[in-house]
Amino acid sequence: MATMLSNIMKNLGRKAATRLYPFEKRELPTTTRGHLDIEIDKCIFCGACQKRCPTNAINVTRDPKTWAVNHYACIVCGYCVEVCPKDCLLLRNEHLPQP
């Protein structure tokens, strides 16, 4: 109890650990896997990412050349980024805003 009381006193004097979220945002580290993005110019539409994706979130068609990701299904594991032969896929560190 004594330790708890002293801890409470310390906390009352300290700055709060939480932040007022929508107004004050946390800075994300560069390594954060936020969402999947593509540099579409480099893409050769080989479909390797589509084949490997564990959740079938990626849809690639050769004719016409389209590449699409279903962000709801994507688990941001980064497997597609690894297998991409052209290194055109990348994980951005910011999270997508809620629609």
Partner: peptide, 10 residues
């Protein structure tokens, strides 16, 4: 006060 005692903003 409770929040502050727990280290939150509250």
């Amino acid at each position: 006060l409770t929040a502050r005692a727990q280290g939150r903003i509250g």
